Simulated scan of single mutants.
Amino acid sequence: MATAASQVILHPVVSQSLKFGSTTLGRDKTYRAVQYFARFFAWYLLRSGDKVDAARWNALKSHLGTARKLLRLGKPVEHLQAALRAALATGPPTEQITTIARQIAYFGFLSYDVIVWANAIKFINLNSETAKRVSKTSNRFWLAGILFSIVNSVLKTVRLTKESKQLRAAKSWGEKDVGEETQRQARLHAVKAAQAAARRQFTIDLLDVWIPATGAEVVQVNEGTLGIFGLISSLMGMQAQWKAVSK
């Protein structure tokens, strides 16, 4: 009995799950996945006429959203630091500019998000019109950040695709010594990994962009669709973090 219990409790997947859950990003992505599933399910229940259960899932969505805002209280400064590091780094100017702009936009989004959180927990009291304006501004910054991220991913993908073709073509330029070929293969592998990361981020951004766009009243997408989009992007984020902690 003890052996069976130890095999379950000490199973590598359980250990990996604990390691994943011990990271702030891992917890946030998990909460986000549940939050957006709740958003979708509440919409589904409302359409089915089940208002009582829909209210329960709406409450879960709201409380998880508030909890996630609390976890992000220090994030604005992180994005300012990231913007500064991007400004000091070397690289393609267009990618550098879009990276800086994205980080500044996220700084604005999360700064306003603090006000939204403080009002939600009644630490401050904003009238309904002011609260709506603050929330809308927060979503506009979030939308701008995602749009800059999409442009950055496109620019990066174009550059990496061009470099990948050049590296493949280099193989036919003639005989090379072992050292040069090893370096070429290593760089090609790194480029492919960067391409995959850029494609993943591009996909996540395309799914997420509709959430702040709807919040900023730029477009109107129903709650069910937003819930599904948010759930998929959250699961993709969880998958990336799972791989990161397993290394």
Rank of each mutant, 00 (worst) to 15 (best):
A2I: 15
A2N: 14
A4W: 09
A5S: 14
I9E: 05
L10R: 12
H11I: 02
V13A: 09
S15W: 15
L18K: 08
S22D: 09
S22K: 05
T24K: 10
T30F: 13
A38R: 01
F41N: 04
A42G: 13
A42H: 06
A42L: 08
A42I: 11
Y44I: 14
L45K: 02
K51F: 11
V52D: 14
V52A: 15
D53N: 15
A54R: 04
A55T: 12
N58G: 15
A59D: 15
L60I: 09
K61R: 14
S62P: 03
A67K: 12
R68Q: 01
R68K: 03
L71P: 04
R72D: 05
K75I: 02
Q81Y: 09
R85C: 07
R85A: 06
A87N: 06
A89N: 07
A89C: 05
P92G: 02
P93R: 11
A101H: 02
R102P: 04
R102I: 06
I104T: 10
Y106W: 05
F107N: 03
F109C: 10
L110T: 04
L110V: 03
L110E: 02
S111H: 00
Y112E: 02
V114E: 10
V114S: 09
V114H: 13
A118I: 01
I121Y: 01
F123P: 00
F123K: 06
I124F: 01
N125E: 15
N127R: 06
S128Y: 13
E129Q: 13
T130C: 09
A131W: 00
R133G: 04
V134C: 03
N139V: 06
R140M: 05
L143Y: 12
I146E: 00
I150P: 05
V151D: 01
N152C: 00
V154Q: 09
T161V: 10
K162N: 12
K162C: 08
E163L: 12
K165H: 08
R168P: 07
A170I: 11
S172V: 14
E175C: 08
D177F: 03
V178I: 15
V178E: 15
E180C: 00
T182D: 10
Q183N: 11
R184Q: 02
A186K: 12
R187A: 01
R187Q: 04
H189L: 13
A190E: 00
V191Y: 05
V191S: 03
K192H: 11
A193S: 12
A194L: 02
Q195I: 10
A197V: 03
A197E: 09
A198C: 01
R199F: 13
R200H: 09
F202H: 11
F202I: 07
T203V: 14
T203G: 08
L206F: 07
L206I: 03
D208L: 02
W210E: 00
A216H: 06
V218W: 14
Q220V: 09
V221T: 07
E223C: 06
G224V: 11
G227N: 12
I228M: 11
I228Y: 05
F229V: 04
F229W: 03
F229K: 00
I232C: 10
S233Q: 06
S233H: 10
S233W: 05
S233M: 11
M236T: 11
M238T: 07
A240F: 13
Q241K: 12
K243N: 15
A244R: 12
V245A: 09
